[in-house]
Amino acid sequence: MPLVVRLRSAVCLLGRFPALAGVDLDVEAGEVVLLSGANGSGKTTLLRLLAGLHRLHGGTAEVLGHDLAVDRRGARRAISLLGHETGCYDDLTVRENLRFAARAAGRDAAASDATLERVGLVGQADVVHGRLSAGQRRRLALAVALARDPQLLLLDEPHAGLDAAGRAVLDGVVASSPAEGRTVLLASHELDRTRALAHREVVLSGGVAHATKDFGVVAPPISRTSDAKTEEEEDEEEVHA
């Protein structure tokens, strides 16, 4: 299966501090990988490095075939990062924020409205971001991430601030990602919940990936260029569902 992420001895400095001190990591297309580790272990830095928001200071890093050492921007249209903040504009409505993100990524703005329904924000479509509750903002951030139709979805503590219904929506998005052709890297402290969603767990400590635990077989991702699914793919989707 093709590699979406390939890190070898990846080093990332925040100031002089090595937030990542030589990470080796391979992530295949269609995998859901859980990143765990204590606070300060490098989970957020790793996700931001993969998104091209941090510079690679040593080693090699490839994301979706783009070498981050020479091209941090090449893969961005195919990546969504749900971080600690929403990345949305307070004075734009839910729909306007969503459409701006979708159009910037070259996606159909009207089709992005479907993600509103998926995250349960249809009723707030014309409310400005600044007036949303914390949980609604997290849902909007998730909708924005999905509206970009990414191949690689990076989630940093995605359950934080969500109510039970919001968590269920998020779990559904992660669970359906392989079938929708998305690869997911998920950093979380809510291990019981996220282990149930992940194929594999990578434990970070001191900026190094120390251990990997496999939870299951990875289903081959559905090709984005083909709408037709083979019987084998449909069977595997059912197994994972």
Binding site: G52, R76, H84, G87, Y89, A101, A104, A105
Partner: peptide, 11 residues
């Protein structure tokens, strides 16, 4: 809301 990061990631 870290909109600058989102702008960088926007492509």
């Amino acid at each position: 809301n870290a909109a600058r990061d989102a702008l960088r990631l926007s492509g």
